[in-house]
Simulated assay, not measured.
Amino acid sequence: MTTREYIIQTADDLIRDKGYNAFSFIDIANVVGIKKPSIHHHFPHKTDLGIAVIGYHLENLNNIKQEFSDKTSIEKLDSFLSIYSDIKYHNKVCLVGSLSTDYNTLEPEIQNKLKEFSDTMLDWVCDFLKEGKREGTFNFNEAPRTKAILIISNMVAIVQISRLTSDKDFNLVTKSIKKELLKR
């Protein structure tokens, strides 16, 4: 892992642990073991780093979309749900869930990148829901975009709520989403 990648990973951890506004370059320097000017070499401003963190997640999402492009709608749904299972397993929160709480204080460039990431996720979920409905695999009455928002918001929320309740609740919500879509 390069120093730049380590800085991005550390910033991602801090954003999803403390929030965007609650960490500084000094926090990153302490974790990475470098001096603050070295971080500025890679990211002149915190905004640049925030954009890079979101860009990292966007690239990962696009890779998943590409990897599953020729899979069934159920496999795509399982892939989407596994993103949140992984977040839960690592005791993190979703990047969108974390940054949306700071949204009004974020620089416009970060807001735009976050919206791009969110729109990409929403479009992907809408697409595989439409595909599944067209094939007769999924059954739902809402518009695909509405159903996608319901599913995404459930997953963002249950990752956080299940910290207070139990892992069983996370599993129940995940299974319930799939079961509801597969109802005939």
Results as ranks from 00 to 15, higher is better:
Met1Pro: 11
Arg4Ile: 10
Tyr6Glu: 14
Tyr6His: 02
Ile7Tyr: 15
Ile8Cys: 04
Ala11Phe: 15
Asp12Glu: 13
Asp12Ala: 08
Leu14His: 02
Arg16Ser: 06
Gly19Ala: 05
Tyr20Ile: 09
Tyr20Phe: 15
Asn21Tyr: 00
Ala29Arg: 12
Val32Glu: 01
Lys36Tyr: 04
Ser38Tyr: 06
Ile39Cys: 09
His40Gly: 00
His41Val: 15
His42Ser: 14
His42Gln: 12
Phe43Ala: 15
His45Lys: 15
Lys46Val: 11
Leu49Arg: 05
Gly50Arg: 11
Gly50Val: 13
Ile54Cys: 08
His57Pro: 08
Leu58His: 10
Leu58Thr: 10
Glu59Pro: 01
Asn60Thr: 07
Asn62Tyr: 08
Lys65Ala: 00
Gln66Cys: 05
Phe68Gly: 05
Ser69Arg: 15
Ser69Thr: 09
Ser73Lys: 02
Glu75Val: 07
Lys76Met: 05
Leu77Ile: 01
Asp78Lys: 08
Asp78Phe: 00
Ser79His: 01
Phe80Ala: 03
Leu81Gln: 07
Ile83Met: 13
Ile83Ser: 10
Asp86Trp: 12
Lys88Thr: 01
His90Asp: 12
Asn91Tyr: 00
Asn91Gln: 06
Lys92Gln: 06
Lys92Thr: 00
Val93Trp: 07
Leu95Asp: 03
Ser98Met: 02
Leu99Phe: 11
Ser100Tyr: 13
Asp102Val: 12
Thr105Lys: 14
Leu106Val: 06
Glu107Asp: 15
Pro108Gly: 02
Pro108Leu: 09
Glu109Asp: 14
Gln111Glu: 13
Gln111Trp: 05
Lys113Tyr: 06
Leu114Met: 13
Leu114Lys: 10
Leu114Gly: 13
Leu122Met: 12
Leu122Phe: 02
Trp124Phe: 14
Val125Trp: 08
Cys126Thr: 12
Cys126Arg: 12
Leu129Trp: 11
Leu129Gln: 07
Leu129Asp: 10
Lys130Asp: 11
Lys130Ser: 11
Arg134Ile: 13
Glu135Ile: 05
Thr137Met: 08
Phe138Val: 01
Phe140Thr: 00
Glu142Gly: 06
Ala143Met: 13
Pro144Gly: 03
Pro144Lys: 10
Ala148Thr: 09
Ile152His: 07
Ser153Glu: 14
Asn154His: 13
Met155Thr: 08
Val159His: 05
Val159Ala: 09
Ser162Tyr: 04
Leu164Gln: 11
Thr165Gly: 02
Asp167Met: 07
Asp167Ser: 08
Asp169Glu: 05
Phe170Ala: 07
Phe170Pro: 10
Asn171Asp: 09
Leu172Asp: 06
Lys175Ala: 09
Ile177Pro: 01
Glu180Gln: 08
Leu181Cys: 01
Arg184Trp: 09
Arg184His: 06
